[in-house]
């Protein structure tokens, strides 16, 4: 996710979660009903926003909390 003006940024930890769950991005895309392209945008940190419905679906599929997926980091 792009960095904010004040320097901090939100990092998407989708790669780590997928590794822990031994799941591929394609499998996750099938489970949450999103396109692979959209999930790639999220994984690579290029997304500008995330819908609650997407967040809920990913958390459901990966059995995690939103805080496990999104982390705020100071620059």
């Amino acid at each position: 996710m792009p960095a904010d003006d004040d320097g901090g940024s939100i990092t998407v930890k989708l790669d780590d979660l997928l590794y822990k769950r031994r799941m591929t991005l394609t499998e996750l895309a099938d489970r949450v009903g999103l396109t692979l392209a959209n999930l790639s945008v999220l994984k690579t940190g290029k997304a500008r926003a995330i819908r609650f419905s997407t967040l809920r679906a990913i958390c459901q599929a990966l059995q995690c909390q939103p805080g496990d997926l999104l982390v705020y980091e100071e620059d």
Binding site: A49, I50, R51
Partner: peptide, 8 residues
């Protein structure tokens, strides 16, 4: 629109 395009 740009924001919407970057929304997943």
């Amino acid at each position: 629109r740009e924001d919407l395009q970057g929304t997943v």
